[in-house]
């Protein structure tokens, strides 16, 4: 029994018939072609598949596409705006927050949830906020610096805007 879903992904409304057992990550990657969201473990542990659903970080390998019906989804592809990188993306580039890059989309989406709740997190808070995301390359130090870079940049941008 296929189910019709309507999901807004990165600001664009999509409507598809899906088999209810389709995982959200499969829907994003295989149906919408948004392969920036990675599948690392497929067992809810590594966080590579993290995206935002209604602004909150979730592991898209542990959510059905039908559960996202009517929701706003944001993936790594939706982070850059008007051709300029999101401060988090810029931070990961500037501070060498990635090596192989496999974990990076999930790291950035989990960091986006963190910064939306806590715009000025301490190092400890950043590490706790990224507990659900594994990186097998960097040793995390530069990831923390990348998030700190983004936090600073966002607060500067907001000051200018005021």
């Amino acid at each position: 029994m296929a189910t019709t879903i309507q999901v807004t992904v990165n600001g664009k409304v999509h409507s598809h018939e899906v088999d209810p057992r389709t995982l959200l990550v499969q829907y994003l990657r295989d149906v919408l072609g948004l392969t920036g969201t990675h599948i690392g473990c497929d067992t809810s542990n590594c966080g590579a598949c993290t995206i935002l659903v209604d602004g909150k970080a979730v592991k898209s390998c542990t959510m059905l596409a039908v559960q996202a019906d009517g929701c706003e989804v944001k993936t790594i592809e939706g982070m850059a705006e008007d051709g300029s990188l999101h401060p988090l993306q810029e931070g990961f580039r500037e501070k060498h927050g990635l090596q192989c890059g496999f974990c990076t989309p999930g790291m950035i989406m989990a960091s986006a949830d963190l910064l939306s709740r806590n715009p000025n997190p301490s190092e400890q808070e950043i590490r706790e906020g990224l507990e659900g995301n594994f990186c097998r390359c960097t040793g995390y130090h530069n990831i923390v610096k990348s998030v700190q870079y983004a936090a600073k940049k966002i607060s500067e941008q907001e000051k200018v805007a005021q």
Partner: peptide, 14 residues
Amino acid sequence: NCKTMIPNKFDYHR
């Protein structure tokens, strides 16, 4: 090619 683990088929009601 998908290596993803997919649940068995089921019907879905919200």
